[in-house]
């Protein structure tokens, strides 16, 4: 029983990270119908910037803030400089652009910071069954998700962003600057991706450190329904718990297989994801 509690707590903390990554993918998918495969690379660069800033100043939290800010800026620049130029073509063009960006950024990270793993500290104590850093992961992702929800639901900016995401032309006719809203969405998503990476990376950072985490994150997004932010969060927790039980009871080497099994099981039962919204009637 003790073991079950341990695995549950640990799975929830990991799940928070997958949930944040999934949320960052869903925000962009909702607005542009693009799965942003460059997300782990953008987040990776943000973590490396945090590594450098923390190293230079000796302050972890300065690096943490720098990572979020870097995520914000890189997301906005990616949309403005790369995605917008292929926006009028099929969504596949944009997906290929994000794949290209993934390779370029991972390569660049290796060139700037070398391919050797650098030690990257936890912000707080990580030992014990439910450590301070586990709690921090849950609380920070929970807060970020609540802020995103409040932004979308209660602010004029959020209303504009939803309008632009759902019906770009109708939004423009209502006076919304759709391009600006898409840039804002990418910036927001990429900042959340940076947060996820800051939680996922310790204790070592290297160019491929986020690959496995991203696979779990994208699984969470697809399982929850690419169209639904709440689905992303639930999917993250589900994948986190599932993988934790499998690694704990059957061995960690089975985790990737379990991830695939979850994906296949969910998609066979509900092809659009567990929490996909019923598709709205088009007028």
């Amino acid at each position: 029983m003790d073991r079950f509690v341990d695995l549950t707590l640990n799975g929830a903390a990991n799940g928070a990270v997958y949930a944040a990554l999934a949320l960052s993918l869903v925000i962009i998918y909702q607005a542009t119908r693009v799965v942003n495969f460059a997300q782990p690379a953008l987040a990776l660069i943000a973590v490396y910037i945090a590594y450098s800033v923390s190293g230079l100043t000796g302050r972890y939290w300065l690096g943490f803030a720098a990572a979020l800010l870097a995520g914000l800026l890189m997301g906005a620049l990616t949309e403005r400089l790369l995605i917008r130029s292929v926006h009028d073509r099929s969504p596949l063009s944009a997906v290929i652009v994000t794949l290209g960006l993934l390779l370029v950024l991972q390569g660049a990270a290796g060139m700037i910071w070398t391919n050797e793993p650098h030690s990257f500290p936890y912000p707080m104590d990580f030992r014990g069954r439910f450590s301070a850093s586990d709690a921090f992961a849950l609380v920070s992702v929970g807060t970020a998700a609540a802020l995103v929800f409040a932004l979308y639901r209660f602010t004029p900016l959020g209303l504009r962003m939803r309008a632009a995401a759902h019906r770009p032309e109708a939004a423009r006719v209502a006076g919304v600057r759709v391009g600006l809203m898409l840039t804002t969405g990418w910036a927001l998503a990429s900042a959340i991706g940076a947060l996820a990476a800051m939680l996922a990376v310790p204790p070592f950072v290297s160019p491929n450190v986020l690959d496995a985490v991203f696979v779990y994150g994208i699984t969470a997004a697809v399982v929850g329904g690419l169209d639904n932010p709440f689905g992303a969060l639930a999917g993250g927790v589900l994948v986190g718990l599932g993988l934790s039980y499998v690694s704990g009871y059957a061995g960690p080497e089975l985790a990737p297989l379990a991830c695939l099994a979850i994906l296949v099981a969910v998609l066979s039962a509900r092809p659009a994801g567990l929490f996909a919204a019923p598709s709205a009637r088009k007028v």
Binding site: P156, L159, R160, R162, A163, H166, R167, E169, A170, A171, V173, A174, G175, V176, A280, R281, K282, V283
Partner: peptide, 17 residues
């Protein structure tokens, strides 16, 4: 050109934003 995913009030608020 209304946005069917938003509520009635949200559609009008959008016009007044």
């Amino acid at each position: 050109g209304i946005i069917v995913e938003l509520t009635v009030a949200e559609n009008i608020r959008l016009g007044a934003l």
